[in-house]
Amino acid sequence: MDFIVKLAEGFINLFQTGADTFIGWMGSIVPLVLMLLIAMNTLIQLIGENRINKIAQKSAGNPLLRYMVLPFLGSFMLANPMLHSLGRFLPEKYKPSYFAAAGQFAHTSNGIFPHINPAELFIFLGIASGIQQLGLPMTDLAIRYLLVGLVMNFIGGWITDFTTSYVEKQQKVKLSKKVHIEG
């Protein structure tokens, strides 16, 4: 009999640990992320999409603008996945590189600005919850994540310029370097 009781306790314990973790998050992370989401959503609505589109049009010429400034602002303003739509203002040749950088900005900025990619928040939060458990501040990690991202995502986009040239040669095609916008 004792054995069955022990077994049942052990079984329930599996879910109790999960439940404690869950309610811990509901009390700490959920309200904070919710408030951030509301504030950011409002800000984005008030600023409007047109302004960021204008910046995108001017960013085509310079790699630093193209793979650092534009995807950083774009991820903040349009969030995932619409930030990829800003690539339409760039020449065909640079679209893969912009995608490469933008896809990474959708994560590295996500620690401080969770509205960018709430669906994949646990990439950051999974690791950060360990930090929180130790009683250390998550913000330190989030800021360094963002800063390292800022540099390395730019390099990632820039490297893609070269891999694109390589694949162009492989497939014997040439992508246009001129901007082409319909409408």
């Binding site: 990829h84 800003l86 690539g87 065909e92 912009y98 933008a102």
Partner: peptide, 11 residues
């Protein structure tokens, strides 16, 4: 993602 950027098939 490239589709969202209105990329051509070639791209």
């Amino acid at each position: 993602g490239l589709g969202l950027a209105e990329a051509e098939t070639k791209t």
